[in-house]
């Protein structure tokens, strides 16, 4: 639950800081939405579409794994970044600065991954002395 709240916070900061990004969703490897700027029912549906988008991009590349994707249309653009099992997808206004959007998405995805990692426990002094 805490992980989802942190991810939601990261997405809220992303859409607040980027003038170009209008919405975003983070999808886990099992196809579930970790966080999104959409309501819960739309997010579940959209997570499936994002998974389909990743699969379609893989088929277009003869089975290669897609790392990034940009689809530009006159109505706006869709960006997608994949790292390990997680995918972040975002929509933007037409003609965005693609490099900046990719940078923002990668940074957000990494911050969510860092939050998910458990912090290493501090070793007791006696254990540390024994090891030394």
């Amino acid at each position: 639950m805490c992980r989802r709240v942190d991810a939601a916070q990261a997405l809220s900061e992303l859409t607040a800081l980027s003038a170009q990004i209008t919405s975003a969703i983070v999808v886990d490897g099992d196809g579930s939405a970790i966080a999104s700027t959409f309501d819960e029912s739309s997010a579940a549906e959209l997570a499936k579409t994002v998974q389909e988008l990743v699969a379609a991009a893989g088929r277009a590349g003869d089975g290669r794994q897609v790392a990034q994707l940009e689809v530009s249309t006159s109505a706006g653009s869709v960006f997608l970044v994949r790292e390990s099992e997680r995918t972040i997808a975002a929509t933007t206004r037409p003609e965005p600065a693609a490099g900046l959007v990719f940078y923002d998405l990668k940074t957000t995805l990494r911050s969510i991954a860092d939050q998910a990692k458990p912090k290493p426990k501090a070793r007791k002094k006696a254990e540390a002395d024994a090891a030394a």
Binding site: L46, L53, A56, V71, T73, A75, G76, A89, T91
Partner: peptide
């Protein structure tokens, strides 16, 4: 194949 899926994402947004 890719474009209709992306348009679906844009429409949801």
């Amino acid at each position: 194949i890719v474009l209709p899926l992306a348009r679906r994402v844009l429409a949801a947004a």
